[in-house]
Structure formats: C-alpha cells, structure tokens
Amino acid sequence: MWLRDGYPENFVDWMFAIWAESVRCPAPRNEEWAAVVPRLTGRPGRTFARWAADHAADFR
C-alpha cells in the first residue's frame, strides 16, 4: 500500500525493519524508565503535568 501511495521502497523497508526490531526488543516499561531518570540526572523524574506546571511561565 505504501509503495502504491508513492513512498520510496527504501523507506518502506526501513519502517518494517524498525517494527521488527521493536518486537525483538520492546521499549522499557514505565517502571524501568523511572529508574533511569535519577541515574542520569541525579534527581527523581517528574510527570509531564509537573514539568508543564513548573515551566508554564516559559510559554507565556
């Protein structure tokens, strides 16, 4: 269908390769990400809602 819609063959092959890899190696669960943030940043992570509230003035 993508080829018929005009997408280049190398793009279609690339998309299928990404999907196949995501099946072999799925993204970490939220609990795993929660452990990564403090290790990388040195502080606990925040929810998007908390981040948005903390930075609301930056977008005014």
Rank of each mutant, 00 (worst) to 15 (best):
R24V: 04
R43P: 03
G6R: 03
W51D: 00
T47W: 06
R24Y: 04
R60E: 12
D5H: 08
V37W: 15
R43Q: 11
R29W: 08
R29V: 15
G6Q: 04
G45C: 01
R24P: 02
M15T: 02
A17V: 00
N10C: 04
E9D: 07
M15V: 03
G42V: 04
N30W: 12
A56P: 00
P26Y: 09
N30I: 11
P26H: 10
R50K: 10
L3N: 09
R60C: 00
L3W: 00
A35M: 03
G6E: 03
P38A: 06
F48K: 05
R39E: 10
S22N: 09
S22C: 08
S22Q: 09
P26V: 11
D5Q: 12
A49T: 06
V37G: 06
L3G: 15
V12L: 05
R46A: 06
M1R: 10
F16N: 14
E32R: 07
W14P: 01
G6C: 04
F59N: 06
S22D: 04
A53T: 07
R39V: 07
N30Y: 11
M1L: 11
V36I: 15
W14M: 15
A57R: 15
R24Q: 12
C25D: 12
V23F: 08
P28H: 05
F59W: 15
R29N: 09
A27M: 12
Y7N: 02
D58L: 12
M15A: 05
E9P: 00
F11G: 01
A20S: 14
N10A: 11
V23I: 12
V36H: 02
D13F: 02
A35G: 01
F16E: 13
A49R: 09
A17G: 08
A27Q: 09
M15W: 03
T41W: 06
A57L: 07
V37L: 12
A27F: 12
G42M: 05
D54E: 15
E31R: 12
N30A: 14
W14H: 13
T41F: 08
D58C: 11
A35F: 00
G42S: 02
L3T: 08
R46W: 06
W19Q: 14
R50S: 09
A34G: 00
A20P: 00
R50Q: 15
S22F: 04
W51L: 11
S22T: 09
A49D: 08
D54C: 00
R50H: 02
W19K: 13
R60S: 10
W19S: 11
W33Y: 11
R4P: 02
A57I: 05
R4K: 14
L40H: 07
R29T: 15
G45L: 01
F48C: 07
V37C: 09
D13L: 06
A53D: 11
G6N: 02
P38G: 00
